[in-house]
Design a protein around this nucleic acid. Structure first.
Lengths: 244, 244, 244, 244
DNA sequence: GATGAATGAGTGTTCATTCAT
DNA sequence: AATGAATGAACACTCATTCAT
């Protein structure tokens, strides 16, 4: 799957498009998955209707059960596909080959832009958390994707530290969560935020402004403390124990 | 959670609590609302079951329709109550009376702690966005809550600017969204994050660590650019029990 | 209640209208009955809603049960009131005092006009038949009304026979059923008839035309066989208007 | 009732009747329709229970929604089927090929006998009028059935006129309504009529007597005025336009 | 592989009626 | 007499899933 977004935004055509309704397992599977992503994104697991997915994908309802077992199996497949897409796109950034500052900035901007382009990822993630990750937890495929990703960020941070560009001791998970958080919250909750603040938050200008803001926030945090551009004696532990 | 979270906003108890099932409209209404908040939080609007809410609240199902019209009416009532609770708690912080740095830090810590103590707020918010704020948008009551809140933050920022503590031109909405984002994403998506990163993110230590991180990130951003700032007094311990 | 139409078409005001909501048993009862007639007429026994009757009559729902026992009791009361009204109006025609031809013609015209003015009578009657007269059969009051009515018509027919105006042996019940039928079917089924025949059957012209037709049909039947009759003076237009 | 009344219109049996509950869409549809006709006839649209229809027809309740959309859709289908049945039976009378007097007499007798054999038609019609023909009006199929029917009667009347058998200017719609009325009212309201007149109106003798009465009434009306068996100068217009 | 008919356990909602005040 | 809260049994309709072809 070369894809990354062969779904919401640009269906890639099969090279030899056969007559519709004919036997073409791969095509049938993909059609179901595409329709399902749309439906689960819009309605959540509970709200999604198997009938709707069947009719939108143009395949017989029975095929869904044939390929994915049941509704939950289909949901899990959508989840894996969606997570897989973002992680694979991140691999394409070749962060390991970049200068620390460039690497981080690239990651921040990519993440923000990906969230703008892929609302289905945000929706699915929010929905899966309502189910306390019950389904994601079953997926070994997804778990395997993240370890190398975090390793890459960690290396970037360590290199930046040594170069005196970043403050010491930054945790890659903590940092990535913050990068994602600043974009996710804004996009995923755009409807309630626009409502309570009485401002349309997703105009091109607003989006550009938010992107710049996110970069500023993260870079300000990464910069070594002002007092001494050399590493500060004070180190804080992002997780437990505490220094004392 | 001391009392702040008597569920949705802390209804005061009736002076003479009578036996349940008796004639007590206020109590009946509250019982329904409490059970509904739990159910909508756990299952979303679609997944929630009216029967479950009825049996958990110990009232006859018919009463739900009597007091709230229908399931959606009940959902909206829960939404209003929940939003109202956090905004009212924020009022109690008396941010307008505080020094800029103290005010902002108080807001950050309060927000983080509130999200920890009130998972129902996070869930409801996520769910409401799946519905594109269809219900929240109907509520005039909720909209009215936010204008003064943003005004207060704006004043805090302006005062901090003049004192040379904060960088110039920070937008209150943008800042508040970031403060909320850093906590919201972590708590709301704790299940998927814990899964993909293979780390339990909600141990007391982890929570404390995240709190410290959030404070650091936000304060680093607020500080005026290095060229013209006086070194900030390093302050820490944004975690621990803290004010709340 | 002097009634005869103090319901659908001209509520008679109480002489001393007291403040609404006050204690006035008679007024409460009448208010319920009026609202109930409207509701049962429009929706039938099954379709009628006790709540609707209560709110339309402006009395508490409990009062309905107080005065009429239950929904069926109220329905029966409406039924009795409605039947009673038409029979009492017929008494006012003083058929016994009229010449045979005048008497019959008066009866035909009265019946037709009554059906036009009292759609509630038609509806209730149709509805009661769907229930196979289950409720009407319980009413002794209604049964007692009809015997004298048929006697009157019988006498009219016998007098007309002797005068050589009517054919011999006409059965009063059969005749009355036909008189009622020709008007009832037209008015009661006006909606389906207008639909299938693509013609609005209840314009003033159409109603006048139908009235004339009914008189013609019945009088043609009443006339003695051609061999031994004196040509009837051709009379038309049962009331006013004329064909137009 | 020979076969004319295989319920709603006389569906032809499947050549190889399979065991019930098997896969046989046509049979399932018919079974639902038959049970529904019974239920709507007995209880009306509001009073009818979908569960009852399902269990009586021996099909799963879900099938009703599969084939007819909802309760109202099923009701409309029953309505169409029922109207269609009587109009199709009328076509079989071949009125256009008959002598005027024979044709009219045949129509009168057929109508009367049809009403006796098909109480469901009467009930449905009465019920549909309580809804002000809301459903019938949606049916184009039904509307199309009536125009040719009225044309046929009109031709019959015109031929009779020329032969000096019928009075001039009789309106086919008006006449047909009267023919139907004289039978409909008697049969449809048999329960209330039997009650108030204290006479069982549906014994074989009574039915035969009523049939004879209806023929007499209609034929008396059709006959040219007595004064001149040749067309009378006096012409009355039962509908509009005026005599002139 | 593919189809659409068939199923049974729910789902939100309504209703006549009663109870406590 | 009058009120409005409370109730439980339905009711129309839905849904994921399976079966026969």
């Amino acid at each position: 799957m070369t894809d990354l977004g062969d779904m919401p935004g640009g269906k890639t055509m099969k090279p030899r498009p056969r007559a519709a309704g004919q036997r073409d397992p791969a095509r049938t599977r993909t059609a179901i998955l595409d329709a399902a992503t749309l439906e689960f994104t819009a309605k959540g697991l509970t709200g999604a209707r198997v009938d709707t997915i069947a009719s939108r994908s143009g395949v017989n309802k029975r095929m869904i059960y044939h390929y994915f077992g049941d509704k939950e199996g289909l949901y899990l497949a959508v989840l894996e596909e969606t997570y897989s897409a973002i992680r694979m796109a991140e691999v394409e950034l070749h962060l390991a080959d970049r200068e620390p500052m460039d690497g981080i900035r690239t990651l921040i901007e990519f993440t923000w832009n990906y969230f703008i382009a892929h609302p289905e990822f945000l929706s699915l993630l929010a929905n899966e958390n309502m189910h306390r990750a019950k389904y994601l937890r079953q997926s070994e495929r997804v778990r395997a994707l993240h370890s190398p990703f975090i390793d890459t960020i960690t290396q970037l941070l360590r290199r930046g530290e040594k170069a005196g560009l970043f403050r010491r001791g930054i945790d890659a998970v903590q940092l990535y969560i913050s990068i994602a958080a600043l974009g996710f919250f804004y996009m995923a909750n755009q409807h309630t935020l626009s409502t309570i603040f009485g401002r349309d938050l997703v105009t091109p200008d607003q989006l550009a402004g938010r992107g710049a803001h996110i970069v500023e926030v993260v870079l300000a945090y990464l910069a070594p403390p002002a007092s001494n551009r050399k590493p500060p004696a004070v180190r804080r532990s992002p997780r437990g124990k505490s220094p004392s």
